[in-house]
């Protein structure tokens, strides 16, 4: 575990030593901020209108009208941001020849993969943490429910963690960071589209399988404050699968 920790520290330092981390966070926070702002404005307008009618007034819900769509938008932004976060993880080491140092030090392939993964997760957590500061305004000036907000962020983190594992896998395949980023982006978009593909099937049995595989399908409940084991298991197993693939690639490369 100490080995993993050394690697995590080095990776996190490398992130903050390069412009990538800052550019990525800036982009993510800018977009999140914009979505938050426009949703709040829209919510204000709606709330004022609905307040005129006692029946509708009871249905004004900031969680449903602001946070739920905000989380959905953020998950789309993550699809574009995570590939930038993960592309350098293994590809850069290979390109620079520094992988030879890692493989000839007493680190196992598992420790290398885990160290890289945890470092990227840390960055993801920092990014999501900063975006959570926006919500302070909503909590200070309104009274949203805390639980759906927390589960929404849990969902974003779990989904991001799965994205990171997939990005790590593609970074293990190539020494070209651009290729790694593009392949990751394509794959994540594909998983996003699965939800839409399944809606074309008109309820056939295969559509259930396809929609189960979709990232966004499992996100829905979490943004509403419902924590279903099925969804948690889905994201965790996607992470495991990505890490397993990355581990296999690194291991096999050395045995070729």
């Amino acid at each position: 575990m100490r080995n993993v920790w050394s690697l995590v520290k080095k990776e996190v330092r490398a992130y903050f030593g390069s412009p990538i981390a800052y550019a990525m966070m800036f982009g993510f926070l800018l977009l999140t901020g914009y979505f938050f702002y426009s949703l709040i404005m829209w919510f204000n307008l709606q709330a004022m209108r609905m307040a005129q009618n006692p029946y509708y007034a009871q249905q004004v819900n900031i969680n449903e009208m602001v946070f739920s769509p905000l989380f959905h938008n953020m998950s789309i932004v993550l699809i574009f941001v995570v590939p930038l976060l993960t592309m350098r993880l293994l590809a850069e080491e290979k390109k620079a020849g520094t992988d030879e140092l890692l493989y000839t030090s007493p680190l196992t392939v598992g420790q290398i993969v885990l160290g890289k993964y945890l470092a990227a997760l840390f960055l993801l957590a920092v990014m999501l943490g900063l975006s959570a500061l926006l919500s302070v305004f909503a909590f200070a000036l309104g009274n949203p429910e805390l639980a759906p907000w927390l589960t929404g962020y849990l969902g974003l983190f779990l989904m991001g963690a799965a994205f990171v594992a997939i990005g790590l896998f593609f970074s293990s395949l190539t020494e070209n960071q651009i290729v790694a980023a593009v392949l990751t982006l394509m794959t994540l978009l594909l998983f996003l589209l699965l939800n839409w593909v399944s809606s074309l099937g008109g309820g056939a049995a295969w559509t259930k399988v396809v929609s189960y595989l979709s990232f966004s399908e499992h996100f829905e409940d979490l943004t509403k404050g419902i924590v279903d084991t099925k969804d948690i298991v889905y994201y965790l197993s996607a992470s495991f699968f990505g890490l397993f693939l990355a581990h296999s690639v690194l291991q096999s490369r050395r045995w070729r």
Binding site: R13, A14, A96, E100, L102
Partner: peptide, 24 residues
Amino acid sequence: PEVVPLYQDMTVAGYLGFVAEIKQ
């Protein structure tokens, strides 16, 4: 190694510290 495995963005002392860590 033939290609010296250096992290260009680290300081000399920082790099050697990292190698010392992973070399246990």
